[in-house]
């Protein structure tokens, strides 16, 4: 191995500082904090109490399980909704329109979650656009309650996350040679067979990296569940938020944060194993 010159250290030191100070140490600290517990005498002791309270209180682990199940479900929904769009933009629509249509997909991403979720709040409220429209055309007499429940929360989570899936799927589809589909079609394969045996296997890397990004955005989201979800649709991030900014029980909050991190990492690890992908490829 050649000897290191100054440039190497000039590149290495800032990167090490970034990763150590802002990622490694804070997460180790969070991990250790999650085992600290203040006794009645005000002493800090090592204890599993923070984790025990998670399992003892039903609301905590029910929210935890619900968050996990919903996150997987909405990720799948995002795939179902956006895959036809990704396919349309790469393989069907005339090339001269596709770049403009892709641009339209980027705009809600850059506008940011808070504004778009707020837009959905107005759309779905009792005085909102959808209820007004339905009453005007005479389909209903009184407003339907669409806001502050699991339905509105799902819409919000879907809207703010799904667009992040289209781009990776499109780049996978772009490299799929049209002649493969033509050949299969010439040999008499049905659309469904082509979809299942050619398109899906070929785009799995794109689906996996898009799916992981979408899943992370959903499971770690606070805005959509909090603004659009009601009392009955609690999200685990809301529990963490309450521990930190409402009850100020930071040690228990650290334990909850660590549990959420474990949950998301485990699910992503399983997803990577199932699809045979590597995390390094998710980034690209």
């Amino acid at each position: 191995m050649k000897t290191r010159n100054g440039t190497f250290y000039l590149l290495m030191v800032p990167v090490l500082l970034w990763l150590l100070m802002l990622l490694v140490i804070p997460h180790l600290d969070m991990f250790f904090r999650s085992f600290r517990f203040e006794t009645d005498d005000g002493l800090m002791v090592f204890s599993l109490n923070n984790y025990l309270s998670f399992f003892e209180d039903k609301i905590y682990w029910l929210t935890f399980v619900k968050t996990a199940v919903y996150s997987i479900g909405v990720t799948f929904l995002a795939f179902v909704v956006t895959f036809p769009v990704a396919f349309y933009l790469t393989k069907v629509v005339a090339k001269k329109y596709s770049s403009f249509m892709v641009l339209l997909l980027l705009i809600p991403i850059w506008i940011g979650e808070l504004v778009t979720i707020y837009g959905w709040m107005i759309l779905l409220s009792d005085n909102g656009v959808i209820n007004n429209f339905l009453i005007r055309i005479g389909l209903i007499d009184t407003p339907i309650v669409m806001l502050y429940n699991n339905f509105s929360m799902t819409i919000g989570l879907l809207y703010m996350s799904m667009l992040f899936m289209i781009i990776p799927m499109m780049s996978a589809l772009e490299s799929l040679d049209d002649s493969l589909i033509e050949a299969a079609s010439d040999l008499g394969a049905s659309k469904w067979t082509i979809f299942r045996q050619i398109i899906i296997p070929y785009t799995t890397p794109g689906i996996a990296s898009g799916g992981i990004i979408v899943f992370m955005l959903i499971i770690g989201d606070y805005v959509a569940p909090n603004i659009l979800g009601g009392k009955s649709s609690l999200w685990f991030t809301e529990q963490i938020y309450n521990k930190f900014l409402a009850t100020f029980n930071w040690n228990e909050g650290a334990a909850f944060g660590f549990l959420l991190l474990m949950l998301s990492s485990t699910i992503i690890w399983i997803a990577l194993k199932l699809t045979g992908q590597k995390l390094e490829r998710v980034g690209s």
């Binding site: 804070p26 969070m30 770690g220 991030t237 944060g257 959420l260 991190l261």
Partner: peptide, 11 residues
């Protein structure tokens, strides 16, 4: 990319 934003914030 795979750490929830909330967890980054609290840590």
């Amino acid at each position: 990319l795979v750490i929830p934003g909330v967890v980054l914030g609290i840590s």
